[in-house]
Nucleic acid binder design. Structure first.
Lengths: 198, 198
DNA sequence: CCGATGATGACAGCCACTGACATCACATGT
DNA sequence: ACATGTGATGTCAGTGGCTGTCATCATCGG
């Protein structure tokens, strides 16, 4: 297949993450990344749509995970339950390699441009979840609301997890992301229950 | 002050919106916008940080509105009530000129790059609301959750409003955005109450 | 051993964006 | 009226992201 070493895409992604972490996203040129991977700038753009996308490699898989989890939820599950299950799976996926997730998060958080891209990805996930809910019969205002609110809870849980994880990395029973997601949803439920205006 | 006609910034923003609407964001060059406003490309970049920012002129005012509304909410109001009040004000702001909002929304929705920027702005609003809640004593998981969930409801209400507004534009008692925001929050409350998993 | 296929390299070019410097309109003080 | 300062604008050169085009090379099937 390839010309030289295999897995050009992976090498590019690896080199990009490393360089972005070392010297920042803006101060890194695509040419640098390509050379670090033993390739040329042109080849970089054949594998990734732009300079940011290289950090969002494998997004489609995640999107599949979310929609499948919702589709496979028991018919008795409420919309929020289905969304909750999907987002807990999402959290478990992150939990698999906390080290890398945190490295990547530091890079993304440091750059406005990268945060933009991340938000668009999360928005795509939200839309996909809403679509999956509609397919199992949830009517329209509810589907969108459940997906958006679920993602809102996930964002809070994720932020907490990323900020607190450093020392207590990995051991069970402590503060795994799926558990935090579930907790966030419950707290959100209570917050809304305390709402006075009807 | 200025050299020629006054309000260079406003002219640039107007020309940009028009050109983006007519021929699309990507097929419009900054030089075109500047010439349409009787200025040069360099001057455009003195007024706006980049090609997208020209559509997000006046964002700081909105941010102020949100934080002030939360700060001025009665001490008895729950976090979700304060957020709800802020987002209803936000909706009322949009309602002032529905025509322009819809024009702008069509342009933004048509471009991924512009949607990216919009999501970042909304995220900044969310963070600001969370900060305002913290300042009035709401502890941390709750502040972030209330802000994120409120914005989630707003997004759904806004999407509905933008999609449905065309015919029934402007008359009272029909489907104003603030009312839709309140409705969305109530529906979200019910959705979460239906959650089975505790 | 050869031709097809797909990935890569090599150029040329557009456009977003920036730094540096010159220039012009306007306000102010004398 | 005139000089002068201030801020906005114009001009120019340059970097870097990104794309189209074509040549080239590695590998696979025959």
């Amino acid at each position: 297949m390839g010309r030289w070493e295999p897995n050009a895409r992976g090498r590019l992604a690896e080199a990009a993450l490393k360089l972005y972490a070392e010297q920042g996203f803006e101060r890194t040129t695509v040419t640098e990344i390509a050379e670090a991977a033993g390739l040329t700038e042109r080849t970089f753009f054949r594998h990734f749509a732009d300079k940011r996308e290289v950090l969002f490699y494998g997004t489609e898989m995640t999107l599949d995970l979310l929609t499948r989890t919702i589709a496979e939820a028991p018919a008795s599950a409420s919309p929020m339950d289905a969304v909750g299950a999907a987002l807990e799976s999402f959290g478990a996926f992150f939990q698999e390699d906390p080290e890398r997730v945190r490295r990547r998060d530091a890079v993304v958080s440091a750059s406005t441009e990268l945060r933009e891209r991340e938000l668009v990805k999360l928005d795509a996930f939200t839309s996909a979840m809403a679509g999956a809910l509609r397919e199992r019969g949830t009517p329209e205002p509810a589907a969108g609301l459940a997906a958006e609110a679920g993602m809102a809870a996930f964002k809070v849980a994720y932020a907490h997890w990323v900020a607190a994880e450093p020392g207590t990395a990995g051991r069970a029973g402590e503060q795994e992301l799926p558990r935090l997601v579930r907790k966030a949803l419950t707290e959100l439920q209570e917050l809304l229950a305390d709402r006075a205006s009807v």
